[in-house]
Structures are given as structure tokens and as C-alpha cells.
Design a protein around this nucleic acid. Sequence first.
DNA 1: CAAAAAAATACAATCTGTGGTATATTTTTT
DNA 2: AAAAAATATACCACAGATTGTATTTTTTTG
Lengths: 343, 343
Amino acid sequence: MRRQKEPAKNISIKHVAKLAGVSISTVSRVINKNSAVKGKNRTQVLEAVKQLNYQPSVFAQRLATGKSNVVALVIPRYEGIFYSFYALELIRGIGTLCEALKLDLLLHLTDTKTSFNLKGVGGIIFADLIGNKHQLEEALGSGIPTIVINNYVDHLEVNCIAIDNAGGAKNAVKYLIGLGHRLIAHISGDLITQAASKRLEGYEAALKENKISLPAEFIIKTDYSRGQARLAAEKLLKLSRPPTAIFTASDSMALEVMAVARELGVRIPEDLSIVGFDDNPSGLYGPVALTTVRQPLIKMAQESVRELSLLMGGTKKPITKKTILPTELIIRESCQSVSSSKN
Amino acid sequence: MRRQKEPAKNISIKHVAKLAGVSISTVSRVINKNSAVKGKNRTQVLEAVKQLNYQPSVFAQRLATGKSNVVALVIPRYEGIFYSFYALELIRGIGTLCEALKLDLLLHLTDTKTSFNLKGVGGIIFADLIGNKHQLEEALGSGIPTIVINNYVDHLEVNCIAIDNAGGAKNAVKYLIGLGHRLIAHISGDLITQAASKRLEGYEAALKENKISLPAEFIIKTDYSRGQARLAAEKLLKLSRPPTAIFTASDSMALEVMAVARELGVRIPEDLSIVGFDDNPSGLYGPVALTTVRQPLIKMAQESVRELSLLMGGTKKPITKKTILPTELIIRESCQSVSSSKN
DNA sequence: CAAAAAAATACAATCTGTGGTATATTTTTT
DNA sequence: AAAAAATATACCACAGATTGTATTTTTTTG
């Protein structure tokens, strides 16, 4: 168990300059623009840098240039395994690209009441705007390059990348219709979230397009929680004329529906088809693998960093860019065509 | 869609000083030590600060003081839902406390080959040392306060906080023994990880303490993956004299064992008791809730930030502190006493 | 009330870089 | 060979704070 010795006094650009026998500014030039300094001086500087193991102070650099290569990711502090997967997927995507682009990633967990400071941050990514619209406005007001992901923001001049929730939902329901289902119920998420309301929208659009009209009780609004999903499932399955298929606004709710069905002796997919949304790996662990709508999380994450780094680069004129990424229907075992369901 | 106007030129300490009619250093003193400046000057400075909405530049501060309040969390870049939960739990714990202590949290995803820079970082938390021992040594060499969590490091002078994997495993197995089980198998994780080898150790200790000796085939070593867990489960359950209980080194493997059991018609808990490790919420979603060993992730996370901030405070003498946190056995539905298992 | 002590404040150096400009040096052109 | 152009480097003024020291102001005290 050796004790680490105190590190020698920090070596600054001065020491390098002295050792190399050139001026400070020459060292600075060598380090920054490769072009300016050439020949013997350049070699000597590089040699000195290596010999002293010199690393410029980021703080001095940022102070001098006024630029920061720190990206702040602002993301809700929710709990739960489904959210964990989602959040970490985003973080991995963003983190990986930040690393590639030599950006530092600062993490900022928020809830509705956190007021944060953006001091020293060069760019901001808002994931999942929750009740914190004012934070976004503050960020925009500060002039720091900002981008919003997983929310389509149309009333503010800010780049955003969202997922085609409506389209994904519509496709899912069309798939069920294609299997012959007509009695298709929907368990929605919390409609104050954009995702949930768009998914409901997509569900309704698919029905309308196919001229299917259903009783109001076929749509049940929840807050995304397991508890409410359970209640919804029970209500639907005990209907005198129950649905033959249920589309839920999230995988977690779909799994809960499966659990309820199991308890009530309703077989999946023979008696009931289920489609979820998110493509959470949990959907694979049960007795019946869940058919679901996959969202391109990693792609969204990486795209956001790419766009942000462009904004941070600064020279570009800030054309506000709104992106919507397509989803993909992942067909597994939880759906069956209605004709074969009488087995 | 309003366009944000360019923010006014940054206001620095100078402007405040001028407006308040005092010197720059007086302003600085007001902002930092509350004591020095009093009376009218103090009031005027505070007034000016508010009026100009002055916020000191972190870079200048760090440059001047040589101190940084940035904490870097170095954590593996693994994927998968079980890891996601674990990692996000840690991140939430650390992030929350960082916020409380006014520390910035920098995230650093690593794999064995990433070489990272610790420039401008005031403290480092290593979570789950993977193949990156050299990174840890680099950190220690740099003199930056460092702490390791979820690994017990005894050969280096560094604070660490780990979980009592051996004790947790031992308790779990003792619980099974208490239920009357004697044929208890273990599916281990990747033994190059400390957690897995300690869990195996605890399993063996519990058996030894109760003078139970079992054939070698009752211990199966895996890499934590679902695939290998499946193979292990199949091998165990097809034994001529199969185990009546299985203790796995992780919940994910326990769930896989459950799936295999279901396929083979082995009832849980009637025919087979299962205990996992981790207390991952996924364990709650299946038909039978999993009995498991809970690790105090949040506590570990928060403790690490608390210790680190002390180290970063600096004045303290660096007494190396090694902490081991206890686990808790969470009893749910996946175990049954051996006598009642003949039903 | 003046002198001494204490407190408050201003000045200037420092932290470590960047970047514009002036000067010195080399290269190219005529 | 001289003039013009291009290039390399040094010098210096920043960036925005902190902090030790000198100085001024205030308070205390004999």
C-alpha cells in the first residue's frame, strides 16, 4: 500500500516555453493551429510538451476563448426499470458521441422544481421536457446552443428531435387490423405528455382510416402506472363484449395487461393480442414475447449531439431544424390473427 | 415563434464594482466570505449584483482558486436492462447528492480501452472497476481525490465503498437451508468480477457452516449472460437428482432459470425454490415474484459523494477508508419450504 | 483629543491561456 | 540586387476571478 507522492507543481505553458526556448505564444500556436509554427521551433515545442507531460488548463483556455466544450444533458429524475432503460439508452448514445467529439458530458437530473445553473456550459440537451418549460426558455434566453429531444416543440425557435409517436401507433393498430381484429382497445398513457397523446392520436387515425368505430369504453386513460394499467385491463377483459386486441401506450403497461390476462385465464395470443410501445427488453422475459413499437433512442441521442456540436461550432447560421424519426414495428409472439384465434 | 435576442455582453465583477462604487476585491469578498465586508458597501454590492443579474464566471473562479467542483463519474458502458437499472440507480443517487452539494456531475462511460482525460475535474468516482485498473492508478497518481464504489480495493490507498456480496449470498443460502433445502445449486457470475466470486464464496461458506457437501456439478460458472444461465438451468434441472433450490448470482439469471423451469414443467416454488441477487424490479413482473438479495445502491452512491466532497474539501488528512455495506434479503414468492413441496 | 488598535477596503500580482499587432526574418518577384 | 510579399515569432493586452499586502477609515482607549 504505497502512498502516492504529491504531484509536482502544475506545469504551465510557461515552463514549456522556457524549456523549448521559445515564447509562450509560440507554444500556444503549436498546440492550437497546426499551421503557424514550423521547423525546429515546432519540434522543440512538441518535444518539451512531451517531456514535461504538459496539459493545458481547460479553465484558462475557456476563460481566454470564452468557449466551453461542456454539454449538459437535462433529464428527468424518474425512477423505475422502464425509465431506467430509456434514460440509460439515451445517456449511452449521447455519452458515446460526446466522447468521440471531445465534449464533456454534464448530467443534470431535474424535476419540476429544480432550478439549475448553466454556468460554464457550452451546449444543452433537454430530454423529455417535463414541467420545466421555463428552464428551456431560460436556456434559450441565455444564448447557449440548445436542443430538445423526444419532444416536438413548435412554439419556440429551438432545434428538436422527436419520435413519430403517432405514426408508430397507427402502424401498430393497422397491423392488428390486418390480422383481422376489429375490437381493438387502447390503454393510453398520461395525456399531458406529448408521447401519450400522439399515440392515442395514431390509434384513432388507424381506426378511422379503416372505418372502425368503437364504444368509448375501449379507450382508457391512465398515468402510465402499473396500477392503473391493471385496472384498465381488468375493466376491458371483463366487458361483456371484450376486445380481441389491446394496444397500450407503453411496454410496461402491456406487461401488466399480460399479467392480468394470465390471472383471468385469458390466453395470449390465442384469446387476446397485445401490442406495446417502446421496445423495452423486459418485453422479452415473460412467457410470451411482446410485439411492440421500437423507438430509435440511440439514433435520436447521437443525432442530438451531432446537431448540437454544429450549433456550438457557431459559425453556422442557426436555421431551426425540427426532426421526426420513424419507428419500427417489432413483431414477436403476442399477436395472432383473429381467424385462428378460435382454436 | 419569436427569435431570442442576443444576450448582452457578459457582465463581470468589474461592472458590479463600478455600479456599487467599490473595488473589485470588495465585490469578491462579499460574494465569497460573508464576514469581511459590512454595512453600506455590502448592501450596495448585493444590490448591484441583483440589478445586473451578475453570475461569476466559473472558469475564472477555478483558474484563480485552482479548485474545481466537478465530480467525474467513471462507469462502464455496458448495455442491457439489468445493467441499466443498476447504473441509473447509481447515477440518480450520485446526481442527487451532487446537486445538493453544488457539485457538477460529469459522466464518463468507459470500456477497457478508453483512455480518458481528467482535466479540470475536482474529484473522481469509479463505479465498477472493469479492466481499467490503470485508469484508477492514473487518477491516484494525479492527486485528484478519488473514490471507488462497488469494488473492494485493498492493494491501493484509495477510499472505497463496496457491498457485502459474500454476506448477502451466505444469508440467502442460509435462508434456503432454513427452509429445509439441502440440494442447493449455485449459478455463478463471471468470476473475474469481484461480486461474482464473493457471492460464490458466501454460498460455499453457508454450506460449509451447515456441513452440507454437494457434488461439484451443483456449481455452474457462467459469464452472467442469459444464454449461459439457460444452459446452466437446463443442466441442473435434468440432473438425475436435481436441486430443490437454486441460488443465482444475479436476478437476470434467476429469471432465466424461471423461464427454463416453466418450459420444463417444473413448478416454482412447489418443485424448485429460487433466490436471485440484486433486487432488480424485473423480478416483480413475472408470474412468481422473485426472492432476492437487495443491495443498497442509493446509499452507496450517496455515501460516495459525501466522502468525496470531504476529500475535495481538502483540509482533512487523507485517512483511507474502506466501507462495506450490508445487504438485505427480500423474501417474495419464489421459495417454499421443502416439506410442503410435495403437494 | 490624540494615539494606538482594529477593521474595512483598494491595489496589484497571480492563475494560465488566447489572439492581435508589430517586428524580424525569410522567400519570392522583378 | 533591391523591393515586395510572405512568414515566423515575440510582445502585450486581455479573459474574470482570488488573495496578500498596503492603505485608508473607523473604533477604542488612555
